[in-house]
Design a binder for these strands. Structure first.
Lengths: 233, 233
DNA sequence: TGTACATCAGTGAACGCGCGTTCACTGATGTAC
DNA sequence: TGTACATCAGTGAACGCGCGTTCACTGATGTAC
């Protein structure tokens, strides 16, 4: 018990054709560490090696450097987030339900994975090596929010009235509206994660409020949609 | 020219009673570095010492560690932000003008001082030693936004209509509304700073849009207020 | 007026640490003949 | 069937670096007698 404490994992070398097994383990370990660490941007190549139970040099066989490994992990996490949002929207009713479900899924994922969220969208990773990826990622995601918001807006009852006003919406306005909604959601997640010690109102309420503001709908309607989105039956 | 390149600053020891001179220089240098560095959270004690042109050990005479120095700087920067917002509000007309001016000042300060903004509100500083400060700071600032938003809402023309609805606003609703506005502004600054390479719409428009959404006012009115707030005459 | 002493404001060298990266290597497993 | 060889999957030691922190020190300036 005293001499074995220094040997955390006791890994056994993989058999011949199984080189990619370690690669998978590295990705898994890096993901776990990014999720766990209080400050994920301080992740270290040697930390990953230790977590897997392997020599630091062994990583170079699979990734040119830590940045490449992190980039790989972030791509996976981003795809996961996109899938979560899509799945949530699939189970929703109507364009407004689609929007609420997407937004709720986004925020909940963000607060449940603070480390990964920060790494993806916090802009804090090594020397902006990563953001090339996460930026493209963000645009994809932004596109889905823009589309969903535009759909929900078009569907709203007072739409006929609006037509007579001057605010006919072109794609540029739609894009800007979606961008604004995304920034609001991002701010919510970021501050919630950064100041978790503060007393926070119910998160689902805040999401509903936000969507209500951005769709000019009554809050109550949205709250109801958000609650059903939270517990899908 | 060849031997002097290694000696950056050529500092001269302060005279007897002037010990606090170095302290001021340290604060100034740390502020400059936090503003300048691409990733301010990687600021180092030795970097500050180099910037001032002093031995690393000399810092310990004035601050117990880097955390204390950074905390000091952040307190100053936060006070600066609060002052900027207050001053902007002083020059504005009416409760709505007050709100627009505050929000615009907040966002503009944030995008003009990305490093310091991140350090203050990004939640990325050394081991959460700082946030005790920046959290209290955030609450103060939040309070001013809550108050200003509540004032602007009370002032709005349709207020009488609203009175008859169920959404009479208690202080808790006001606090939540202010919090939501703050998260929106924070998200705007954070994403703008993180993805400056993206094509962004005009920032003043975005601010105006945001305030318009949160006050249920027509955008045009707010845009006008925001433009006059931008160039105070 | 002279001198011993105290204090102030920092210095400079050293320490141990964790880091990224390199390099020659090892030892098991498959393949050719 | 036996054996030489190639390849695969990773090891282990070493490197130079920048870091935070410590410690005894230095040298100018003020103060007491």
């Amino acid at each position: 018990m005293s001499s074995e404490e220094a040997v955390p994992h006791r890994r056994r070398r993989n058999p011949r054709g199984q080189g990619q097994v370690l690669k998978a383990e590295l990705v898994e370990a890096a993901a776990r560490l990014l999720a766990t660490l209080e400050r994920p941007e301080t992740l270290t190549l040697r930390q990953v090696a230790r977590e897997v139970g392997v020599a630091p040099a062994s990583i170079y066989g699979h990734f040119p450097d830590l940045g490449a490994l992190v980039q790989h992990v972030l791509r996976l996490r981003y795809d996961e987030l996109a899938t979560v949002m899509r799945t949530a929207a699939d189970g929703a009713e109507g364009p407004l339900g689609d929007l609420v479900a997407r937004c709720a899924a986004y925020v909940h994922w963000g607060v449940e994975h603070p480390g990964q969220y920060r790494t993806l969208f916090g802009g804090g990773m090594p020397a902006e090596l990563v953001p090339t990826n996460s930026h493209g990622a963000g645009e994809e995601l932004l596109g889905s929010v823009v589309a969903s918001l535009a759909g929900a807006r078009q569907d709203q009852p007072e739409h006929q009235d609006r037509d007579q006003h001057q605010d006919r919406r072109g794609p540029e306005q739609e894009w800007q509206a979606g961008l604004l909604l995304w920034t609001a959601l991002h701010g919510l997640v970021a501050l919630y994660n950064a100041h978790g010690n503060m007393p926070w109102p119910d998160l689902t309420d805040l999401i509903a409020q936000t969507v209500a503001l951005h769709t000019a709908r009554p809050v109550d309607e949205i709250v109801e949609l958000a609650r059903t989105a939270d517990r899908p039956t």
